[in-house]
Nucleic acid binder design. Structure first.
Length: 325
DNA sequence: AAAGCGGGGAA
DNA sequence: TTCCCAGCTTT
């Protein structure tokens, strides 16, 4: 990060912010409101709510004097209503005790976390601290070609870059660069003042690496039915594990009567649970074993997923999956 | 560590 | 239709 590049980025921001009504103020109340109300979602989506709220409560004192019902009415439609309540609590506290002048003090206020505290401290009070939101995270990850920007790495990278003479403008410049140029999809690299040093430019979508889908836990039932010839197996033609064979399985904690009827299952009893993790979901499968008059297949003769091997073992068919049935 | 918040746009 | 967003609080 050369001095010339710093100037280029700040110049880009100075030009951009004329069109950004929520930028360019040093009033901590307005800054806080914009961070709380705009930061969480698309700006164009939230801007009308921001304007309406500011019109109704132009100052922190006006907000502090209001009752909660009026505050929620002004917030109506913006979502995240707990934030409105936190903001009111904050306003009353600040009206009484004054603004904390640094990040540590701001952090104690209700609804203010590390990002918001750093943003207000740097923009309103000029404290040289880096504010890292999702936009800044993306910019840093791309310029450094870092696919996994962890919290510690981000803290170091952001602090290294910070422009101590204009910390508020610097933080806002990076945020807006991420929001307007270095976007998650289809970044406008041709318009980016940092393109010259960006090591991730060739493959911006890799930085940061797409977040792993959070593994969600799903409950399933599975039927392990012994039948002449082996075990009832079905060919999974669609969905998960398509192409492989497996035991009948479905959503829920126990097989519905219609499923039992379909296989003419008899003597069905619980046989424990099996846990199996895919990259994007965690299954908890409740295994039931029983007998059926037909449909038996030798499991060793069909391609089975590891999940189904586990299910067979849970039902007491140790060797079945290895082809010894 | 993970879920919930809540609205809208993308997939 | 479901998924995801982004920071903070709560569990």
């Amino acid at each position: 990060m050369t001095p010339a590049l710093r100037r280029a980025l700040l110049a880009w921001y100075d030009a951009e912010r004329r069109a950004l009504p929520w930028r360019g103020t040093r009033d901590p109340y307005r800054i806080l409101l914009s961070e709380v109300l705009l930061q969480q979602t698309r700006v164009e989506q939230a801007l009308p709510y921001y304007r309406r709220f500011l019109e109704r409560f132009p100052t922190l004192e006006a907000l502090a004097a209001a009752d909660e019902e009026a505050v929620l009415a002004a917030w109506q439609g913006a979502g995240y209503y707990a934030r409105a309540r936190n903001l009111l609590r904050l306003a009353r506290e600040v009206a009484r005790a004054g603004w904390p002048r640094d990040r540590a003090g701001l952090l104690q206020l209700p609804g203010v976390g590390p990002y918001t505290a750093a943003a207000v401290a740097s923009i309103a009070f000029g404290e040289p601290v880096a504010a890292v939101d999702g936009n800044v995270r993306r910019v840093l990850a791309r310029v450094h070609a870092e696919p996994e920007p962890g919290a510690a790495w981000l803290g170091r990278a952001a602090a290294d870059w910070l422009e101590p003479a204009r910390p508020g403008d610097w933080n806002q410049a990076l945020m807006e660069l991420g929001a307007r140029v270095c976007t998650p999809r289809n970044p406008d690299c041709a318009a980016c003042p940092l393109a010259g040093i960006c090591r991730g430019r060739a493959a911006p979508e890799r930085y940061p690496a797409p977040r792993k889908r959070r593994a969600r836990t799903e409950e399933r039932w599975a039927l392990v039915l012994q039948a002449p010839g082996g075990v009832v197996l079905e060919h999974r033609s669609t969905g998960q594990l398509a192409g492989l064979w497996g035991v009948p399985m479905g959503p829920g904690a126990a097989p519905p009567a219609v499923a039992l009827a379909r296989y003419r299952a008899r003597a069905v009893e619980p046989a424990g649970t099996v846990r199996h993790a895919f990259s994007h979901r965690r299954l908890v499968v409740h295994v039931f074993r029983g007998r059926a008059p037909e449909g038996g297949v030798a499991p060793g003769a069909r391609p089975l997923a590891e999940l189904d091997r586990k299910l067979l073992r849970a039902a007491g068919l140790e060797g079945a999956a290895e082809g010894e049935a």
